[in-house]
Amino acid sequence: MKNHAFPFSALVGQEEMREALILNAVDPRVGGVLIRGGKGTAKTTAARALADLLPEKGDGKRMVELPLGSSEDRVAGMLDAEHAIKTGEIRFEPGILAKADGNVLYVDEINLLEDRIVDLLLEASASGVNRVERDGISHAHPSRFTLIGTMNPDEGELRPQFLERFGMCVNVVQETDEGKRMEIVTRRMDFERDPVTFRSGFDSEQAALRKRIADARKLLSGTSPNPGVVRSAARIVSHLGVESCRADVAIVRAAHARAAFCGMGIPAREDVLRATRLVMPHRIETEPFDEDRGPMEGFEEWFGTV
């Protein structure tokens, strides 16, 4: 089916979520984003809307979705039964992880995914390779993807190991500003009434955003990680008491992506700050029994003193 998604530039509010998604479009190495939030906070709409902003690829695919009830063999790939019955040959039939290679892989209600499917995603995202060893098939293919997940924490949390695989995490809260809320509802109504006309109304904005992302990508391809930023990241992460070095890497990537999106080669203090806000929340909360203390709160002041 064709893409008739809500245009990204028509989203109202939820700045953090939008920023996180855009930074992932600018640099997939940021490592994906997990969007957590209550019902009706437009997280799914926003995630799907990102597809339109991703750079065009040869096969036209930019975002691959993994539906909840997917079976293990369809995700990892399996023996091509049709081919086997017809020809007697054993052949690998690629699954979702093959389709996802080089793309964004989106999972809605990601916290409801079965453990075995999570294991497959974990393995592929850790190694960049999908290995299938089943039903007489021994096959491996590259599977590098930007993982985007949305979830409602009321229905359960993610496993820590899985959580940590996300470069960023955004907790969205609902909009309480009356004016913004009216704007959201009106746009949504207009879109549902006539998606084609609505989308065309945002064509130029979408194009501008796409161009900005493309420019940022170009700028980024010529820069290498700034040692000063690496050091600040290490300092921030140690200060916040997080062990995993993936946090540092994600901050550096995100800061650079943000700088590039603003047309700068070297990240400024603000870029590092914003990057930290996106990269750290789920790493601090990994331990679900910690107080909701939010060391992030005092963090900005602390950062100001360094």
Partner: peptide, 29 residues
């Protein structure tokens, strides 16, 4: 649904402390 109707929907949702704007939309529809 004009602005006053939309406003009424949003007000009701906020007044009743309902999560998300799915309620606003459902009211209008």
């Amino acid at each position: 649904a004009g602005a006053d109707a939309v406003k009424a929907a949003v007000r009701i949702s906020l007044h009743l402390g309902v999560d998300g704007h799915r309620a606003d939309l459902a009211l209008i529809k």
